[in-house]
Design a protein around this nucleic acid. Sequence first.
RNA 1: CGGGCUGUGGCGCAGUUUGGUUAGCGCGCUGCGUUCGGGACGCAGAGGUCCCCGGUUCAAAUCCGGGCAGCCCGACCA
Length: 478
Amino acid sequence: MAAHGGAPGAKGALTPRAEDFPRWYQEVVARAEMADNGPVRGTMVIRPWGYEIWERLQAALDERIKAAGAHNAYFPLFIPEAFMRLEAQHVAGFDPELWVVTHGGGRELEEPVVVRPTSETVVNHFFAKWVQSHRDLPLLVNQWCNVVRWELRPRLFLRTTEFLWQEGHTAHADEAGARDYALRILTDVYQDAMEQVAAVPVLVGHKTERERFAGAVRTWTCEGMMGDGKALQMGTSHELGQNFAQAFGIQYSDATGVLRHVWQTSWGASTRLVGALIMSHGDDFGLRLPPALAPVEVVVLCVREDDAVRRAASALADELRRAGRRVHLDDRTDTGFGRRTVDWELKGVPVRVEVGPRDLAQGSVTVVTRHTRTKQAVALGGVADAVERICGRAAGELRAEALAFRESRTASVGSLEEAVEAGASGFARVPWKAVREEGELQLASEALSVRCLQRDDGGLASAGEADDALVAVVGRSY
RNA sequence: CGGGCUGUGGCGCAGUUUGGUUAGCGCGCUGCGUUCGGGACGCAGAGGUCCCCGGUUCAAAUCCGGGCAGCCCGACCA
């Protein structure tokens, strides 16, 4: 680690990741002031530091979703229970997770109302109304909202009863149109935002029948590896075929006047991504944020109470702001220097500029890079450049580190037995032929699952390509 | 829903076995002062239905009965 590391084992330090990863995670969430448990079991209060990170992720996704041609809309929280029952697999998939409102206005409702676990059904109810002609297609809609699902074992950001997400719903004239769009969302929206913005490398592929979304014909997924070697599903894009179109009667007249059912997709990514960020990049000192997602990119810290220090720090903060950075000036005099540095480190602020009398005597300041925890003396005139350089490199370095970690924990094997062994600490790449449905059952008994199927070179299967030629990525998961 | 464990200031815990004054400790919080180059220190404070209900007893955080809640591990999920 860095030569200037904090006192190891200092009271109040985080539990080391290697000692107890889940505990480390909880402590980071609490002490970086990202979230709290809500009063109703499984609910989550997202605090400003966590929410601002989400807002930046959201902006990155929203921008890409719009670039893919979809428009935002909003559908209601409440869904008639009858809607949920229209598509058989969908019902079966979600039934155990539903929250149902039975009372309103002090009376029992004649027809219970479901709190949306996803909006598939309401959206399609309206698609049936809006789609009449081939000229109405493709219809590309996205919504940002909360959804609610019964959860047995909640964990902040990763799995909560209520969470925030984006759900896209589209209708296309033909199968290829739907399929291409689902893939476009997977790679151009999800994979790109995760790798380029969140700096989390992901594997892309499709789910096995067992892991597929209820009602989909194919589920595409982005899977990341967290700091403990477990997989996290970070975004999914579904080809729905005509399942919902038939259940909801979504039809259009084609150019020859023939009535046809549409082909559809749906896709979602949630606040779980905040958890992915924590677990991918965090270290024993707390969060490490890629600058693009950091609520504060640079904190300018006065080492001690001193007029010259304060003036210099304030001037530097202004200069950095003018350079377009999100800057916070920490000139608190009621909290010790050590405490303040540790707090900013916990929160993952990418760059710390420490201004003290000793620095100023040299005409310089101390610039600290969070993700490497390295310090350097920088001349006052060169601070903006130094910050620019660090922020420019941080995401790439975090991504490379995460990728190297994933590769160090990934083994290519030939048999199910070997996959079980390798999957315990990371990912096992094993021919799907060696697994299949029977193998999946055995994996489940070892707390493992097939995270996705992909080509040996990491590429996506093409239309009509048999799973037999593909590789299964096996691992533990969240 | 099966197995294990725990409920004590905001958080983490001790005390319960063997009932006994005013229920402690660490962190956090408030005030004052000294501090401040990697989680500072002193002094003075605030903060409690000991999960709930009932029972035993002169006396219950502690013993008994019943309830409730939460955590961890297994079957489902973004």
